[in-house]
């Protein structure tokens, strides 16, 4: 238990680091971490019900495009659009979920992969709405109650708050009755169903929740970067989220947080290496996976079965 608090202490110290070091570049890297943490958590939620979803990048894209278009085309207040974008992603998951989640295992992964490809193709081909491969640019800055997010620090603060909300919500979920139902579904679905739990409904709920988180993160991304194109929401983003869960440890909610904190800035640390950046990135990942097989979280929490 003490070790978990140590992890919280380290994460809190790291969260204040941008103010200590200072500079827009550091705040940018930190902001990207706060965008990726909720995304990694959204995948973790699906892993909790035993399903590997490759649709998280698509949900992020739906949230991002949805939020940005609501503001740019329909004059929605940007902050409202961010959450509306999340709801749009959640609604998409609610429609697709009952069909997708009848399938399990590798077939579900393939189905969500196909879904992600279709969504990306729609972003590419429906140019009048999504701007095609040229994307959408000139996206206004976020604002709330008349206060404009004019600096990277504003986005970082907002991202931190959103991360904290997601983490606390998923931590409470993990420790609640629902968390135990999820665990039972993952470990022995037949037994769980024989005890009366509606496996499909719970899985759909997890899918919708994960899409909501990914969609909101997408909205923040869209307003922060100021440019959207389908390239940002490909299958490879979903792969990055898997890496964050594996490196951090997928058995606990803390795992993807640690994974994102480690993985997102890694290419930036290696920028100086230039030609060898990708090679070193790969070697570092292999070393971590070999030495800390169950993820960074095992350094701070007792290992859980599975």
């Amino acid at each position: 238990m003490r070790k978990t608090y140590l992890a919280y202490l380290i994460v809190a110290a790291l969260a204040t680091l941008p103010w200590v070091v200072g500079g827009r570049y550091v705040f940018h890297v930190a902001t990207m971490i706060t965008i990726m943490i909720p995304l990694a958590l959204s995948l973790n939620l699906m892993l909790k019900v035993g399903q590997l979803s490759l649709a998280q990048a698509a949900f992020m894209g739906i949230g991002a495009y949805g939020a940005v278009l609501l503001t740019m085309r329909l004059d929605f207040p940007p902050m409202l659009s961010v959450f509306a974008g999340g709801l749009l992603a959640a609604a998409t998951a609610a429609i697709c979920g009952p069909v997708f989640l009848r399938i399990k295992g590798v077939y579900f992964a393939l189905l969500t992969f196909a879904f992600g490809q279709i969504v990306n193709l729609v972003f590419q081909e429906w140019t009048s709405l999504f701007g095609g491969n040229s994307g959408i640019y000139g996206i206004p800055k976020l604002s709330v109650f008349g206060m404009r997010f004019s600096t990277t620090q504003h986005y970082y603060l907002f991202g931190l708050v959103f991360c904290a909300v997601c983490y606390v919500a998923l931590r409470l979920l993990e420790r609640s009755e629902i968390g135990r139902i999820f665990q039972a579904l993952k470990e022995d679905e037949t037994l769980s169903r024989s005890l009366g739990s509606n496996a499909l409904a719970w899985r759909v709920a997890a899918f919708v929740g994960s899409a909501l988180i990914a969609g909101i993160a997408g909205g923040i991304y869209g307003f922060y970067i100021g440019f959207l194109s389908p390239d940002a929401f490909t299958f490879w983003l979903s792969v990055d989220l898997i890496v964050m869960n594996v490196v951090g440890g997928a058995t606990s909610v803390l795992g993807p947080v640690l994974g994102a904190i480690f993985i997102v800035p890694l290419p930036e640390f290696l920028r100086e290496a230039r030609a060898f950046q990708l090679l070193i990135y790969g070697v570092v990942l292999i070393i971590f996976l070999v030495l800390i097989k169950d993820g960074l979280v095992t350094l701070f929490e007792r290992r859980k079965p599975g």
Partner: peptide
């Protein structure tokens, strides 16, 4: 785009 923004911030900052 996100990598370009990171690179730009680093170049500037």
């Amino acid at each position: 785009a996100a990598d370009a923004v990171a690179a730009y911030n680093r170049l500037l900052n």
